[in-house]
């Protein structure tokens, strides 16, 4: 009960701050106009969900591969993996989108914007995810692997029974945060005219300027509808798997 009142209080504080700001800035919100764009918002929403979903899976796979590559016995593979992480993390996503789509995509005949968008986003997020996984692996004391060896576990069982369960619990919060970023970062794919949520909003506001602010508020709420469950799910998983008090 206390919790509900607390959330209600938070909601009131934030909404009153926004409403007062809107009044002071003399911005008029007319949400009734939004109904006319419901189908386009829906289509954009679905596309954002699809892109984010595939990008999450692909970036997780890529991130895992990069972690393995950084442990490779061949120096060139290790250097390739760490260069990838440094280059991706050191450059803006917007630049990467333009570079990958217009230069690499064109060079290799990748014209499907959806597939290109998913790949670009995965390559970007994969670098961050690899660092999260690497940090998680490094946080598990090497002594635990020695204990696992002492009880005669095979390497595969060591990975499956000792390393993986602890790794998952340790990296879930950070991975969930990154998944929320995947959803939000997908908005930049509007640059290459993928008609996801952001692009839909841009198009609506371009044709009907009076909906400018309300469209972006609807956009923010729709993104929150996607990112909030991700963060709730991560908290739930974190709690149900907690073994450290």
């Amino acid at each position: 009960m206390k919790r509900i009142f607390s959330w209600l209080g938070v909601f009131l504080i934030i909404s009153s701050f926004l409403i007062i700001s809107a009044i002071k800035a003399d911005v008029n919100f007319d949400f009734t106009q939004m109904w006319a764009y419901r189908v386009r918002f829906y289509q954009g929403f679905v596309l954002t969900v699809q892109i984010s979903f595939f990008a999450m899976i692909l970036s997780l796979l890529l991130g895992t591969l990069v972690v393995l590559a950084r442990k490779s016995r061949w120096m060139i593979i290790r250097d390739l993996a760490s260069s990838y992480v440094e280059i991706i993390r050191g450059t803006p996503l917007l630049v990467q989108i333009i570079f990958f789509y217009y230069i690499i995509g064109t060079a290799w005949g990748l014209s499907n914007r959806f597939i290109a968008g998913v790949i670009i986003l995965s390559v970007f997020e994969g670098a961050y995810i690899s660092e999260i996984i690497r940090g998680g692996v490094n946080s598990i004391e090497s002594k635990q692997l020695e204990i696992a060896r002492s009880i005669g576990l095979s390497r595969l069982k060591m990975f499956r029974l000792i390393l993986l369960p602890q790794l998952i619990i340790r990296i879930i919060p950070a991975i969930a945060g990154q998944f929320a970023s995947v959803i939000k970062d997908s908005s930049l794919l509007s640059t290459i005219a993928i008609i996801e949520l952001m692009q839909v909003t841009k198009e609506i506001t371009a044709t009907n300027y009076s909906t400018y602010y309300t469209s972006y508020i609807v956009l923010a709420v729709l993104y929150l509808m996607l990112t909030f469950p991700v963060s709730m799910l991560s908290r739930g998983l974190e709690r149900s798997n907690r073994y450290e008090i």
Binding site: Q144, A148, S150, I151
Partner: peptide
């Protein structure tokens, strides 16, 4: 060595248990 380890019980100085189990 792995076969040999199966014949041995080893107790470490401290923190010898798996924390997630």
């Amino acid at each position: 060595l792995n076969e040999y380890r199966k014949m041995i019980g080893f107790v470490f100085q401290s923190h010898g248990l798996f924390p997630h189990l």
